[in-house]
Amino acid sequence: MRAIRMTSIAALVVAVSVTSVAPSVAAPVSDQDAMFVKAVHQGNLAEIAAGQDAQENATTSCVRRVGAVLVRDHGKLDADVKTLARKLDLTLPAGPTREQEQELAAVRAKAGSPAYDAAWLKTQDAAHTKTLAMIDHELRTGRNAEVKAAARAARPVVAMHLDMVRGGTCHDVREPATVKAGSGGQFAAASDASLTAGAVGLAGGGILAGLGAAWLIRGRRRSAQDR
């Protein structure tokens, strides 16, 4: 009976250790996740280019300030996207989409006139509305936890940008409470937390499995002695 009891305890411990390891396994990168990462990268490149162009060609200080914010924030966000892409072994496009390039060229054709500012704001309103919808779609349907964490971290920044250009009207620049991106940022922090949790789970599982094996051996020895 003692041998049976010790075997049952050991089996239970091993089962618990396996369960503790399972959550640390990252979800696979789906086609949706991969497309999202690549699209966000291209969007960042397009916004950086648009922001730089506004700083050079806008006729109002408000549009120039918003342009500077886009360059700063999308630069930080894209640094994190590149880090995430390397971790997930995803190849990123070299530049914005052809449509994004054509839109900027059409706005640039109005450089130096009030029409430029109006066209720039209208284009940015549409672009950030589209990006926000893309982020929300990833949060609903994405599978990879790290990609979804990236979307969640970028959302308040994109929403803030949209507020600055909403309706094709330039609004005063409002700084976010924190924009933790670039050099690791929120994306990497979420990834590191996931990896740390996985390491803890593996370590805990190994200890429990070792204890279970020791208890099993001890139980068998006692059983033999009883005989």
Rank of each mutant, 00 (worst) to 15 (best):
A153T: 00
A145G: 04
D163Y: 01
A94W: 10
L90N: 00
L202Y: 08
D78W: 01
M1D: 15
A118K: 12
R140W: 07
A27F: 13
S24K: 03
E138G: 15
A181R: 03
R108A: 12
V40Q: 11
A54F: 06
A188P: 01
V29I: 06
L90M: 07
L139A: 09
A10K: 06
V147I: 13
D163F: 05
G142W: 05
A68N: 11
D136K: 14
A214V: 14
A190S: 12
A190C: 07
P156A: 13
C170D: 00
W120K: 05
A133I: 06
K87C: 07
Q186Y: 06
A189D: 12
A151V: 09
W120I: 00
A49F: 05
I48L: 09
G67Q: 12
A181K: 04
D136S: 14
C62V: 13
G201Q: 08
E47T: 08
M164V: 04
V157M: 09
R152C: 05
H171V: 06
A154P: 04
K148T: 05
R108P: 01
K110Y: 01
V66R: 05
S183M: 04
Q102T: 07
C170Y: 04
V66L: 09
S61R: 12
S17Q: 02
A106R: 11
G168Q: 02
D226L: 15
P156R: 04
H74K: 07
P23G: 02
W120T: 02
A39S: 13
A181I: 02
G206T: 14
A209Q: 09
I207W: 13
R86T: 13
W215H: 07
H137A: 13
V200L: 15
D53P: 06
A213Q: 11
G142Q: 04
T83I: 06
K87Q: 12
A190K: 06
P156C: 08
M164F: 09
A199K: 14
V18S: 06
M164Q: 01
C62N: 11
V157F: 00
V18C: 12
D80N: 10
M1S: 15
A26T: 03
K148S: 07
S183Y: 05
G43L: 00
A209P: 02
G212D: 11
V66I: 15
M134Y: 13
G204V: 08
A15G: 02
G112F: 10
A10Q: 03
R155Y: 06
G167K: 03
L121G: 03
A133M: 00
L208M: 07
F36H: 00
A58Q: 00
A26L: 08
M160R: 13
G75A: 08
A133H: 03
S8C: 10
V157A: 06
A15N: 04
G182I: 04
M134A: 15
K148W: 10
L70I: 08
D163S: 10
C170A: 08
G206I: 13
A189I: 05
L77D: 01
A50G: 05
A154C: 10
Q225H: 07
V13E: 03
R72K: 15
A177G: 11
A106T: 04
V40L: 12
A68S: 15
Q100Y: 02
T83P: 00
A133V: 01
V29L: 13
R72I: 07
A203H: 11
